[in-house]
């Protein structure tokens, strides 16, 4: 029983060690690692990193599976798919799929504010008290706060529209992204977005960004 345990946990080749030595090695491996690290009053020191103990039960992930699941788009444009969409196409799609929740102009809600400044809704807005009370998160705006336009594409493609996420074609996502950027005054009305142009759009949120990691205030 003990020997079975040892031969499973020890790296190949070690299983031939004499029984007593092998047991000691297993105990040593475990007690050195996080697996048995008690949640004891061990002062402020961070927990030690796990040892390079490889269990080895993971199975190879095929390139086809990576392609199938890896949908994250990065600020430099990495992983943006082929295709393109215009502001005009996006406006039609927005009215059909997005306006009911985000409002025709992207500011009315009830869902997150997509356009304009962040902060409290303007005093001149006749519906201000209603909006602030009912939809407090409308103090945030995608256009003002998000640092990279690639994130607009990434999130619309993975999560929108809320009732049918991932139902839009890549060209449609490019179009809706272009429309939202235009509503924010960041691209022209005849703009066309694709994987080359989208990462070049400069968002106001980028220069306002300060990272709390790794520096801590």
């Amino acid at each position: 029983m003990r020997e079975d345990l040892c031969s499973q946990l020890l790296p190949a080749g070690r299983a031939t060690l004499r029984r007593g030595v092998a047991v000691a090695m297993v105990v040593g491996l475990l007690s050195a690692g996080r697996a048995s690290e008690a949640q004891a009053p061990s002062a402020a020191a961070p927990a030690p990193a796990a040892p390079p103990l490889v269990i080895g039960l993971g199975q190879p992930l095929s390139p086809a599976d990576i392609d199938r699941y890896a949908i994250t788009v990065f600020p430099n444009g990495r992983n943006l798919p082929p295709g393109r969409g215009s502001v005009e196409q996006g406006a039609r799609l927005y009215a059909m799929h997005c306006a009911a929740c985000h409002g025709a102009q992207g500011i009315e809600g009830p869902a997150a504010r997509l356009v304009g400044t962040d902060g409290f809704i303007g005093w001149s807005d006749p519906l201000r008290p209603l909006r602030v009370r009912k939809y407090p998160l409308q103090v945030l705006s995608v256009g003002a706060m998000w640092p990279y336009a690639t994130t607009v594409f990434d999130y619309v493609r993975r999560g929108m529209p809320m009732h049918a996420p991932k139902s839009l074609a890549d060209n449609e996502v490019y179009g809706i992204t272009a429309h939202l950027l235009h509503l924010n005054g960041l691209v022209a009305g005849d703009a066309l977005m694709d994987k080359e142009k989208l990462p070049q759009v400069v968002m106001p949120g980028r220069d306002r960004t300060v990272s709390a990691w790794p520096q801590e205030r």
Binding site: P75, P147, D154
Partner: peptide, 9 residues
């Protein structure tokens, strides 16, 4: 990646 939630909310 600057995902949606680390971009705004």
């Amino acid at each position: 990646a600057y995902t949606k939630d680390e971009s705004g909310l």
